[in-house]
Simulated scan of single mutants.
Amino acid sequence: MWRSVAAATTVAALVAVSGCTVQAVGTPAEEVPPVRISPVPEASPDDAKPAKPAKPSKRPAPEVPPKVLWSKGDKGRDVRELQARLRQIAWLFEGPTGTYGASTVTAVKGFQGKRGLPKTGKTDSVTWRRLLNMTREPGKWELYASGGQPAAKPDPRCLTGRVLCVSKTSRTLRWMVDGRTVSTMDVRFGSQYTPTREGVFNVYFKSRHHVSTLYDTPMPYALFFSGGQAVHYSSDFAATGYNGASHGCVNVRDEGKIAALFSQVRNGDKVVVYW
Rank of each mutant, 00 (worst) to 15 (best):
D186Q: 09
T194C: 00
W175H: 10
P195C: 01
D178N: 14
D178V: 04
R180T: 15
Q192G: 08
K206N: 07
R180Y: 03
Q192L: 04
R208Y: 15
Y204R: 02
D186C: 12
T196I: 03
T196P: 03
W175K: 01
R180I: 14
Q192F: 01
S183Q: 10
V182E: 13
F205W: 10
S191D: 14
V200Q: 04
T184N: 05
G179L: 10
K206F: 12
V187C: 10
R188E: 07
Q192C: 00
V203K: 02
V187I: 14
G179C: 08
T196V: 03
S191K: 06
R208V: 13
F201W: 05
R188A: 03
S207R: 11
K206L: 14
T172H: 12
T181E: 08
D186R: 14
V177L: 11
Y204F: 13
V177T: 12
T196K: 07
V187L: 04
R174C: 05
Y193V: 14
T196A: 00
F205S: 05
V177D: 09
N202H: 14
Q192A: 11
G190L: 01
D178G: 11
D178I: 06
F201L: 12
G190D: 08
G179M: 05
S183N: 10
V187S: 10
V187F: 07
V177H: 07
V177R: 12
M176D: 07
F189A: 04
D186I: 11
R188T: 06
P195F: 04
T194D: 02
V203P: 06
R208I: 13
D186T: 10
G199K: 04
V200L: 08
V182P: 00
Q192D: 10
Y193H: 13
V203M: 00
V203L: 06
K206S: 09
S207A: 15
R180H: 11
Q192M: 08
T172W: 03
N202C: 02
T181C: 04
Y193Q: 13
M176G: 09
S207F: 01
M176E: 08
K206Y: 11
S191R: 02
Y204A: 03
R180V: 14
R197Q: 04
M185P: 10
F205Q: 02
V182I: 14
L173N: 11
T196E: 04
R180Q: 12
D186F: 12
D178R: 08
V200M: 07
V203A: 09
W175N: 03
F189W: 09
Y193T: 15
W175S: 01
V200S: 11
T196R: 03
L173Q: 09
T181F: 11
